[in-house]
Design a protein around this nucleic acid. Structure first.
Lengths: 152, 152
DNA sequence: CTCATATCAGGCTTACTGACATCT
DNA sequence: CAGATGTCAGTAGGCCTGATATGA
């Protein structure tokens, strides 16, 4: 997929960190979203379900903050999940602006399924790296993310 | 931008390699494309100019293979670059199907400019890492990319 | 005939922007 | 009044599918 030309050295810019990063991420993203697509789900769905499971029912705004999903995208995703009976929307009695979103039993089962496949995908993604190298990589990435996340 | 909630631990899935990778890449992509956008350019433009500079004039099909840009997207990008006088399209006398694309002087100047900014962006991206850690990171990423690139 | 080239028209995705009515 | 919430419409870049016309 990335083969330059028959027996030709790759372009210089293919050694730039930003290129390596975005391309590797593209592969990772493809692996993950293919996995999800096979289960008729998307990344947003998994993030929402997992976050509800971990932190409990929440308003769409809170969910948006925890999942790093835009409020405007939240609406559609919740609709899709609700249509499949994986989450439920109920009004917040203490604040009539809000919907309280909660997972259903079917949602939890779906989450378990998606999670299992996701874990398997991590292994496929990191296949060529040793355990130690995997930790190195995640450590470095986490530091980058942390650095750029703090200042905004 | 990634702040979960006021004083709340991040969700478990935010430690997954695929998440760290795609999010870091998203930051990188934003940094890079902002840089390019400020110069009224896009990633495709840089890739094309740099590849022409490095390997010389080529047909659009060859360019597509070297830059990993789809032929269908090639057309529009070349149009944009040609409109700005950065590249030139001329017919290939030995094969009338082909256009031969070549960089102009203005194109080379633009490339130099974009490249300088791109290098600066790499530094911003990797700011929290030492020189040694940067090499570790790029080494690991390159191995992942290589691994996943070979088998298809 | 098959294959390569160039073009055009469109889809899909994640992220984001802006507008809006509603409620606190 | 400012500010938060939910909704809807639309944008943009990168990647991709398909159909087509032309020429090797």
């Amino acid at each position: 997929m990335d083969a330059p030309m028959p027996d030709e050295p790759p372009a210089h810019w293919k050694r730039l960190p930003s290129w390596l990063l975005t391309q590797t991420a593209a592969h990772a993203h493809r692996l993950v979203s293919d996995t999800f697509a096979a289960a008729d789900a998307r990344g947003y769905h998994y993030r929402i379900l997992a976050t509800l499971d971990e932190f409990g029912p929440a308003s769409q705004a809170d969910l948006g903050r925890r999942t790093a999903i835009h409020l405007s995208d939240m609406v559609g995703s919740i609709n899709e999940l609700a249509d499949q009976g994986l989450v439920e929307r109920s009004p917040d009695p203490s604040d009539r602006r809000r919907n309280i979103i909660s997972v259903t039993g079917a949602g939890l089962r779906r989450l378990k399924d998606l999670h299992a496949q996701l874990v398997r995908t991590q292994d496929e993604l990191l296949a060529p790296l040793s355990k130690r190298e995997r930790e190195q990589l995640t450590g470095l990435l986490a530091r980058l993310l942390d650095h750029h996340g703090r200042k905004e």
